[in-house]
Simulated assay, not measured.
Amino acid sequence: MIDLHTHILPGIDDGSQSLETSLKMARIAVADGTTIMACTPHIYPGLYMNHSAGIHAERDKLQLALNTYGIPLRLVVGADAHLVPELLEGLKTGRVPTLNGSKYFLLEPSHNVLPPGLKTLFLTSWPQATYPSLPTPSAWSGSKTTTANLSPWPSAVPGCN
């Protein structure tokens, strides 16, 4: 099994805050059948100042610890990228990583309201061959940003999940 959305890297966002917690999370994942896990910390300028090089470095440290402790889990890089003005440029330059270097990335739009013009942005400005995936649509329950609001997107945006 592959887990595409985790906050397992210690101390770099609101997920795990220690190596011990990350190792515990990894052991639970392996016990549940996970063999590959995407490390997807938040990228949110001003709050979580993560970037591709830093995420890779933290993933490498945690992978070494997993190997040392005999935890059979392969870590890959990704990010939970918040919708901010810098996102498009970050994707184009590689500062915002895609899921394991693929054409997909996790997009975290506002939990309160779907930004005006977002669909047009995807259709006209998105980096070629890069597709957003929504990591936590359940977090939007009770808000104006719901999966129902996004339901027409797969037909409008090729590759949109």
Rank of each mutant, 00 (worst) to 15 (best):
Met1Asp: 08
Ile2Val: 02
Leu4Cys: 05
Leu9Glu: 01
Leu9Val: 06
Ile12Ser: 04
Gly15Thr: 08
Ser16Val: 01
Ser18Ile: 10
Leu19Phe: 12
Thr21Met: 09
Leu23Ser: 04
Lys24Thr: 10
Lys24Ser: 09
Asp32Leu: 07
Gly33Ala: 00
Thr35Pro: 00
Ile36His: 01
Thr40Tyr: 04
Pro41Val: 11
His42Gln: 03
Tyr44Gly: 05
Pro45Ala: 13
Pro45Trp: 10
Leu47Tyr: 12
Tyr48Ser: 04
Asn50Asp: 10
Ser52Asn: 15
Ala53Cys: 07
Gly54Arg: 06
His56Glu: 14
Glu58Trp: 11
Arg59Met: 07
Arg59Phe: 06
Asp60Leu: 06
Gln63Phe: 02
Gln63Asp: 08
Ala65Met: 11
Thr68Leu: 14
Tyr69Ile: 02
Leu75Met: 13
Leu75His: 04
Leu75Trp: 08
Val76Pro: 03
Val77Gln: 09
Asp80His: 15
Ala81Tyr: 11
Ala81Lys: 09
Ala81Ser: 13
His82Trp: 14
Val84Pro: 00
Glu86Cys: 13
Leu87Ile: 12
Leu88Ala: 10
Leu88His: 05
Leu91Gln: 06
Lys92Arg: 15
Arg95Glu: 08
Arg95Trp: 01
Arg95Lys: 13
Thr98Leu: 11
Thr98Ala: 12
Leu99Phe: 06
Gly101Ile: 00
Gly101Ser: 04
Gly101Val: 02
Ser102Phe: 06
Lys103Tyr: 03
Phe105Pro: 02
Phe105Thr: 07
Phe105Lys: 04
Phe105Glu: 07
Phe105Asp: 01
Pro109Thr: 14
Ser110Glu: 01
His111Met: 09
Val113Asn: 03
Pro115Met: 02
Pro116His: 05
Leu118Val: 12
Thr120Val: 07
Thr120Arg: 03
Leu121Glu: 02
Phe122Ala: 02
Leu123Thr: 09
Thr124Gln: 07
Thr124Asn: 10
Gln128Asn: 14
Gln128Arg: 13
Thr130Arg: 12
Pro137Asp: 06
Ser143Ile: 12
Thr145Arg: 00
Thr147Trp: 14
Thr147Arg: 15
Ala148Ser: 05
Ser151Ile: 07
Trp153Ala: 03
Pro154Ala: 10
Ala156Ser: 08
Val157Asp: 01
Cys160Ser: 15
Asn161Cys: 15
